[in-house]
Amino acid sequence: MSIQREMINIYIGGELFQVPEGHTIMMAFEYSGFQLKRGVGCREGYCGACATVYREKGDYKLKGGLACQTVVTDGMTIAMIPFVPAEKPVYDLNELTPDVGTFTQLFPSVFRCVSCNTCTKACPQDIQVMDYVQALIRGDIAKAADLSFDCIRCGLCALRCPAEIVQYNAGILARRLYGKYLSKNSPELEIRLKEIEEGKYDKEIDELKKMPGDKLSEKYYSREINIS
C-alpha cells in the first residue's frame, strides 16, 4: 500500500524540478536525475558530506542544513556545497601541550571571534559553536572538547564566520588534546596491557584455538554471563 504523494516545485541551482513531497533534499536531487558523487556520504547525518544552502519560499534568509536530513518544501531553492577549501594546519600531537598557547600558534584566527553567534546558528548539529570557540580563547580545552563533540565537519560554520575561523579544525584538535592529555588513564587497561605482554592468556587462547567444535560449543553455551 504505497501512498500517493503531492508533487512540489523545488529549484536546484535555480532550475525548476518537480519532486514528491516528504523527500529529503538528497532524495529530491536523485529523483530529479542527479547521480551524486560529491555532497553525498553516509546519508544518515554522520559524515558531513552534504552541507547545503537553501532558501524557502517567501523568505530572504539563506539557511544551511544537511541534504540527507532536511525535507524539501514547496518553492525551496537549493545549492549543495561541494567542498570547503578551509585551511588545516599540520601538527604533531606528540609535540603539543593542551593549553591556549597551542591555539594561539596553530589557530590564531580563533582569537578574532567577535561573538556574533553566526556559527552556532549555522550548525545543523545544534552545537554551541561560538561557546566552544570562546572556551578555546579561555584555554578551557576540556569544555571545547565537550561542546564540539557532535561536530561532523560539514563546514557550514566556517563558511559563515565573519572572522574567518575554521571552527571544526580547532574543535578536533581540542578533542584530540583532551583524549590524549587531559583524560585520566584507565588503571584496568594498563594492567591488562601488561598481562597481555607477559603472555598471561596465551596458553588458554591456544587451547581454545585447538579445541574440537563440540567441546568449544559446550564451553561457549555454559560460560557465565555477567552483564549489567
Binding site: 572538547a145 584530540r176 583524549g179 583524560s183 585520566k184 587497561l189 591488562r192 596491557l193 597481555i196
Partner: peptide
C-alpha cells in the same frame, strides 16, 4: 589479543572514550 592495545593506541592518538572521573572506562 590486539583489542586492549588498540584502545591504548587510539587513546594516544586522542580518541575521547567515555570514562568515569577516575579514568576507568
Amino acid at each position: 589479543m590486539d583489542a586492549p592495545p588498540s584502545i591504548k593506541w587510539l587513546e594516544d592518538l586522542g580518541v575521547m572514550f567515555d570514562k568515569n572521573p577516575d579514568g576507568s572506562m
